[in-house]
Amino acid sequence: MFWLKMKFRNLILLLLSLLLLASCRHRGGVPNPAPGVYYWKTTFELTPPQRQWLRHQHIQKLYLRLFDIVPSQQGPIPNATITFADTIPASLTVIPTIFIDFTLFRSPVDVRVMAANTLQRISKMARTHGFHYTEVQFDCDWTPSTQQQYFDFLQAAHQIDTSLILSSTIRLHQLSLPAPPCTYGVLMLYNTGNFRQPHLQRNPILDAEDVKPYLQHLSTYRLPLCAAYPNFDWKILFHHNQFRGILYNENLSDPHSYLPINATTYRVIAPHDVPVAKGSPYIHLAPGDVVRHWQSDPTQIRQVQKMLSTHSRTIHQQTVIYHLSAIDSL
């Protein structure tokens, strides 16, 4: 098991390196293409392995989630704002990234006010924490019914600061919808399956079969795209075939606690409690519970990369890795 794990780890590291190296070979749609990575945690604190990885991979762009925007009784408000326990390396270009809960667009929203509030808050955060930016990215799982308000929001943001580059994440299902009004999109090539299903055969992090149906839209998509690939893994706990949570940093190779059933499935054999996130409340694992361990699979990533390249010559001008915190567990 250990050997297998080491081999897997090396493979994913090697592949990610190749992907990042392949970035910025061409000039085209995405402005200033450069290897990038997402930072999605609520506390910014770089570990030594993360700093080392950033250096070794020559990462230049840090897509840094600053806060979410969520609906509330008072209208859209920021939530889960990042706190800074560390300084941002000077070598990185910060791209403030804002997650927008798309459900807020289900009701009428004053998008001009929301855009002004958002840009002003980003500006204040940049000033307080001493980073410069020329681009802002929005991450929103918009749907046909919420598309108009999201697009209006992007246009409002552009009108407020025309010098700012605006980008948007693009989920695979959104490829069949009109492109958002921004400079470029980052195609999210992860979370392609439903990890809450206990008996999944395909890897829910990324499986080429789940990407195939959307490829037909790629060549005609009216927005320059770059690709974001996963490097994380999931340990999903099921109790009586019902999803209970994602485990944090759990050692599935402990023979006293787990019995391996197959390459991705482990059965709990001894009761114990584990945290679901660092410093978070614990979750109880009972004998008979099942943990499905899904890892970003280099074979699948390579296959998807090939498929995308045949449909878009420019999509790999820039590659972004999701996400930096997963480096610690690789």
């Binding site: 949570g245 009761p271 409690d273 679901v276 409340p281 614990y282 979750i283 109880h284 009972a286």
Partner: peptide, 15 residues
């Protein structure tokens, strides 16, 4: 309750 959520079951109680 927030701290204890997820900590359920008789075996957990035994511990």
């Amino acid at each position: 309750h927030l701290c204890m959520r997820g900590l359920r079951g008789a075996s957990c109680m035994s511990r």
